[in-house]
């Protein structure tokens, strides 16, 4: 799976993931409080400049942002029809700014950096016994590892439909896909336990068998 990270050496690339996430959250709150179209317009321009500094390129930016901007425009037009033009402008500018900033953070922060930051943030929860922080990275890795295989299985099931002259329906595709995929859970879990990857307290698997 390709990620939305873009290699580069801009200011945002050099900032730590934590700094960027905290700044993004703070700006988000400030923007929700802010209701002046003029100030929001200025922040949109600033966000645009920051986004441009990352170096994503026009084509790639268009591909990435189009779906989100479509929903923003739909909502803005809706606001224009039912509320005032000023409120519509506020909505449009506020959302555009937020999305640009968030997209810039995404493009300049690698998956590994995020995972490390989230693992660190989860340590206090670990002390409360709620999660195992290291499971987060493991889970992310597992999904990236198995998406291509689930996709391959999906294609095989679709081919099987075709070979037997059956129409592919959501139900007849989803059920075998789920069963065939989840049946591997026992094997994968056994491999994780056998390799001692989750560390202490081996899972109580045998009880459940």
């Amino acid at each position: 799976m390709n990620t939305l990270y873009v290699t580069g050496n801009s200011l945002l690339h050099r900032l730590s993931a934590r700094a960027k996430l905290i700044a993004l959250a703070a700006t988000g709150i400030a923007l929700i409080v802010l209701a002046s179209p003029l100030l929001l317009g200025i922040s949109t321009l600033a966000a645009l400049a920051l986004y441009a500094s990352v170096g994503i390129g026009w084509r790639q930016s268009w591909l990435r942002l189009r779906p989100v901007f479509v929903t923003i425009f739909v909502v803005a037009i809706f606001a224009l029809l039912v509320n005032s033009p000023e409120e519509a402008a506020v909505t449009l500018l506020r959302l555009t700014t937020l999305v640009l900033l968030a997209a810039a953070v995404t493009a300049t922060t690698g998956i590994g950096e995020f995972v490390d930051e989230i693992t660190l943030a989860a340590r206090p929860l670990e002390r409360l016994g709620l999660v195992r922080a290291s499971d987060i990275g493991l889970a992310v890795g597992l999904v990236i590892r198995f998406v291509p295989e689930v996709l391959g299985r999906y294609q095989a099931i679709r081919d099987a439909h075709e070979a037997r002259g059956l129409k592919a329906r959501p139900l007849t595709l989803a059920v075998p896909l789920i069963i065939l995929t989840l049946k591997n859970a026992d094997d994968i879990a056994a491999a994780i336990d056998a390799r001692g990857i989750r560390g202490h307290k081996p899972a109580r698997r045998s009880k459940e068998r």
Binding site: N184, D187, A190, A191, G196, I197
Partner: peptide, 22 residues
């Protein structure tokens, strides 16, 4: 179990399911 599994490695029938990171 943990001590034992550190001494005894296990390679499963389906290596597909044994390798868990991408």
């Amino acid at each position: 179990g943990e001590t034992v599994r550190a001494k005894v490695g296990f390679i499963f029938q389906n290596p597909q399911n044994q390798i868990i990171l991408p």
